[in-house]
Design a protein around this nucleic acid. Structure first.
Length: 425
RNA sequence: GUGGGUGUAGCUCAGUUGGCUAGAGCGCAGGAUUGUGGCUCCUGAGGCCGUGGGUUCAAGCCCCAUCACCCACCCCA
């Protein structure tokens, strides 16, 4: 019986894992540069946290959660996103007692039960950033610019920033009513899905991809025109800050995000090179979330970036991620005694800090050289019985093909000189 | 959950209207070079043709079912 990885999950093997490490390394550098610190929360939480945080009527909660009962009868859920956990932790650990704002980032797997397709998996990975404890529109702009800065490290092109405001708990319901009226009046022009959405989730009609609905949607009342004074001011201010940083954005009245906790600013970065799932990262403000999960009223803003989608984007644009390959030295051996000495030298070289390798399959010199070549070894030494007797070995530069005879006792110094260019004292 | 597509060697794929021992390129292993990689050449290993039924003298090919993967819808990272 052979097993497959469960549907929607993937093994991340080398060399892909090296790309992941590179992305994570860049992320940690950029996030640190903006003074964000890492937070690590549990992979699973009480189911109720997500039900209340994300919203009962969202797709995530209604049909996408990996929920199970533990032996103590508690209902737990594999996290479908990161923000709810971060805010739960913020409240639980009373971080609001410290100087604000609090700036966190996280990296890790998320789980949603969905049919996999391009850019969508059941276990996927997000890089997320949260700035908690301030409603300053400048932070909205900082979060967005941070995401853009991170992406700029990869040389991606044709990325578009979509921006919108979804209002607050006071002005959004009023807008929804206005939108609903409009949709009801134009009901006959909508597709069947949208007809059903009018009651269930009228905002969803706005991002329907069906061509029939487009004309109706284009003329629909825009939420921007129905924001309360405060929300409108916030939205204008975010734009002003983005302008200062010369970040281009596209005001997209159809941008409505699927999670209930969003307020005010909503944004997405899309890559036109991707398929149907083209959002590389998305996020927004969530000023109501803390209260929703039973805490104080604490504002926050953040984004989550899909690592798989970033990788797809990088691939689609033919960008090479620099991965460290190659070793400093490959030790080729002939015979048992030479192998023992090679084994000792290999250990010594590694302890000195060199990346080295040797043969473990008792293969011919020719095969060992082939291996060295495939491993991208800078140098090889050849150790046989003759060399052992003379405490010497041939060291070969694999790029030039030059060889010279050296004393084994001076191998470390020789390598230091060759690899680091250090003068031997 | 719904729809479409695809399953043949480690990988990418050929395989004529069903017909004898199922192929190529790449990769892998060994050799040409009794102890030296990349180029070239030779040789070799590796396939219950996704799985289970059915039709047929005969199935990789036809039919049914099932599973997996891909893409799209829904929705989102």
């Amino acid at each position: 019986m052979q097993f497959n990885a469960p549907r929607g999950t993937k093994d991340i093997l080398p060399p892909a894992s090296l790309k992941w490490q590179y992305i994570e390394k860049v992320a940690r550098e950029v996030f640190a540069n903006y003074n964000y610190d890492e937070i690590r929360t549990p992979i699973f939480e009480y189911t109720e946290l997500f039900q209340r945080g994300i919203g009962e009527v969202t797709d995530i909660v209604e049909k996408e959660m990996y929920t199970f009962e533990d032996k103590g009868g508690r209902s737990l859920t594999l996290r479908p996103e990161g923000t709810a956990s971060v805010i739960r932790s913020f409240l639980e650990n009373k971080i609001y007692g410290q100087a604000q704002p609090t700036k966190y980032y996280y990296i890790g797997p998320m789980f949603r039960y969905e049919r996999p397709q391009s850019g969508r998996f059941r276990q996927f990975h997000q890089l997320g950033v949260e700035a908690i404890g301030s409603n300053d529109p400048a932070l909205d702009a900082e979060i967005i610019s941070l995401g853009m800065r991170f992406l700029s490290n990869f040389g991606l092109e044709d990325l578009s920033l979509h921006l919108n405001s979804v209002g607050c708990k006071y002005c959004r319901p009023k807008y929804i009513e206005i939108l609903k009226d409009y949709l009801i009046n134009n009901r006959e022009l909508l597709c069947n899905d949208c007809k059903a959405r009018i009651d269930r989730n009228p905002l969803r009609v706005l991002d329907c991809k069906n061509e029939r609905c487009q004309s109706v949607i284009d003329d629909a009342p825009k939420i921007v025109d129905h924001l309360c004074r405060e929300c409108y001011g916030h939205f204008s201010s975010v734009q002003a800050y983005l302008d200062i940083l010369k970040i281009n954005y596209y005001i997209n009245p159809k941008l409505v995000r699927g999670l209930d906790y969003y307020t005010n600013t909503a944004f997405e970065i899309k890559d036109s090179h991707l398929g149907a799932q083209d959002t590389v990262f998305g996020g927004g403000r969530y000023n109501g979330l803390a209260e929703e999960i039973g805490g104080k009223k604490i504002p926050g803003i953040g984004f989550a970036l899909g690592i798989e989608r970033l990788l797809l984007s990088i691939k689609a644009q033919n960008i090479e991620i620099p991965i460290e390959k190659g070793i400093d030295l490959y030790i080729t051996v002939i015979g048992e005694n030479a192998k023992k000495e090679a084994f000792r030298l290999n250990d010594l070289l590694r302890n000195t800090g060199f990346k080295t390798e040797m043969d473990y399959l008792d293969r011919s010199v020719r095969s060992q050289m082939k291996s060295a070549d495939r491993m991208n070894a800078d140098y090889t030494i050849i150790l046989g019985e003759d060399e052992l007797e003379n405490d010497s070995a041939t060291i070969r530069n694999m790029k030039t093909g030059n060889e010279k005879l050296i004393k084994l006792s001076s191998l470390i110094n020789e390598m230091k000189q060759l690899v680091y260019g250090e003068e031997v004292v």
